[in-house]
Design a protein around this nucleic acid. Structure first.
Lengths: 212, 212
DNA sequence: CTCCTGTTCTACCATATGGTAAGTGAGTGC
DNA sequence: GCACTCACTTACCATATGGTAGAACAGGAG
């Protein structure tokens, strides 16, 4: 988006090999985890040998780094769009949360990777958060301004961000836990979970209306 | 607790071998992850060979299962104590969150394992949540009763639980992310994070007081 | 002293893994 | 036609891993 590339949908065979590898890696790292994914298996799933992967990314860690970069960019693009697009105050917060849930429905692996990354040592986590830094800063500034203006209840912005992010990813992606809690994690329940979490956040963030 | 065992603190050498193995496994699985922990390394850290571990637990997966069971029991004990002990309404919620944070300070590996487990496939997650089931049911019933009585704002109890749990573990244990966010995760900041998260939860849960 | 049981060790194995080395065929520039 | 690059492939390797087999060693029973 924004560059000169045509927006036409590419045939699968037209997708450049590195992109296809990153797609497969995202799916596998997000579900089976980084350690649980072997280059052999990844190559087999792509119909190529693992050396093709090593050719493009040099090493398994290089693949992870590239994947983190691309994923962070995609995540930041989606959320930034919502952050810029909607009206201010609570409406903007809700728009961002909604788009995060939409992402969880359309590309669950992406949030799965984010969860996985925080487990892969300081390097990976730092890389991810660094790539998200501009988004985080903009979000923090927005929250502080809205709190100053009295349109949102005052809270520690950093903790608010981390707590909301944790809650959203937890509620949107912890399918095993949900199943064990008796919630079948299908599309319909995702919408219900989204509504419930938005209600919760609204209660925490929207100031009580002046009585009368 | 509750059985006939003496409560006196045991010398390290007195701790039975299986317990010592579970302690080391908890530390290693929680930080380096299950896949990232080899039985060889675990044995070396304990000053024994990996065969001693296999002798007690049969297989690596057997060790994981036993660890999940013990950890779930410990987690449930701590939280249940808080759930029973405090006054009703918001005070009880706050007490549970406080004791979760205390646990995060004293035994961070425990919450680290809980985070790790949800990545290890349906089996492990199911095993953990099953062991926590009684606690979950009691908590859900408590929340529903308090909401009915108007002492807590009405929300979906399941989502409320999952969101709170995600937020607490996120805020309490995502040290890499916090560091990248500019928060040095020491003891003092843990207390500050706890306060901020409790404020957030209170805003979401405590009904607005009648004006006047 | 001998036997037995419980606990841990040494030795070993099959398998899987990330990574290297070298080769191959298609396409391109000249 | 020839050199060269690109995008891979097959072949191979060192290492690490979970797990098995069996010896060794302690301590108690008889």
């Amino acid at each position: 988006m924004g560059d000169g590339t045509s927006a036409r949908r590419l045939e699968p065979s037209e997708v450049p090999t590195p992109e296809r590898i990153l797609d497969a890696a995202l799916a596998s790292f997000g579900s089976r985890g980084y350690d649980g994914t072997s280059l052999d298996a990844l190559g087999a799933a792509l119909g190529m040998s693992k050396q093709a992967i090593l050719y493009w990314f040099g090493s398994k860690e290089g693949l992870l780094d590239a994947l983190i970069d691309r994923s962070a960019r995609e995540l930041a693009d989606v959320l930034e769009l919502a952050l810029v697009g909607a009206d201010g105050g609570w409406a903007k917060v809700e728009a961002v949360v909604r788009s995060a849930f939409r992402l969880a429905g359309r590309r669950p692996e992406l949030l799965g990777l984010v969860r996985e990354v925080s487990r892969l040592g300081p390097g990976a986590a730092l890389r991810l958060v660094s790539a998200l830094q501009p988004l985080i800063e903009r979000a923090t500034a927005f929250l502080e301004a809205e709190m100053d203006a009295g349109r949102l209840r005052r809270h520690d912005p950093t903790i608010l961000l981390l707590a909301s992010y944790s809650a959203v990813t937890g509620v949107a992606t912890e399918v095993e836990v949900l199943r064990a809690l008796g919630v079948e994690p299908d599309r319909r329940s995702l919408a219900r979970r989204r509504r419930a979490l938005i209600d919760l956040l609204r209660a925490a963030l929207v100031p009580a209306p002046m009585p009368g």
